[in-house]
Amino acid sequence: METLVVAVLLTFLVVIAIGIIVLRDLLGAVILLGVYSLVAAGAFVVMDAVDVAFTEAAVGSGISTILFLGALSFTSHKQKPRGHDSVAALVFVVITGGVLIYGTLDMPYYGSAESPAQTHPELAVRFIEESGSEVGPPNIVTSVLGSYRGYDTLGETLVVFAAGIAVLSILGLKRRRPEDEVLEDAPGDTARGASDNQQAYKE
């Protein structure tokens, strides 16, 4: 039964992915990407990954969609209706996919309890058996995230911090006007050259 639900949700995902490829309207594609994340979150619940499901629903489907909508409000909604050279891309994608599918033939089957990932004594087995006494929280994912793989989470925080700084510095540069630039010529500031380019293009 569970397998059937997962199979149906997977089929939904394929339909949505085809919709994203076909749609020329970027707004529609962004909304479809949000729907895609939400359907994936539903499938994660069926596959017992509840923490991942609510993170995917909140971050993947919520915040990510808002970011895309914000970017679209600064740019344009329409993808230019032009024929692209997609035959080479299609051949490349089909070959890559074929190789990957060939690679899955050795993989443990869906739901297998004997696969190496499930039976490695230092990983999943230890987390499930010992985390209650070693760390404490009943949610094993919390224990692994905060304790066993704590440095991983620290690194994640660092990446998010770096990304925040990057976004601020990329978008912050545009506030400078060319006349301000003459007064304070900050090193490494490219806003002036950029606006000059734009002017040159308009001419």
Partner: peptide, 25 residues
């Protein structure tokens, strides 16, 4: 079910949104 992939993917979701935010900027 195995909790380890869940932890790895929790990290990956947040990092993925951070990278797409930089790309969109």
């Amino acid at each position: 079910s195995n909790p380890l992939p869940h932890v790895l993917i929790l990290t990956a979701i947040v990092v993925g949104v951070a990278t797409s935010a930089v790309a969109l900027a």
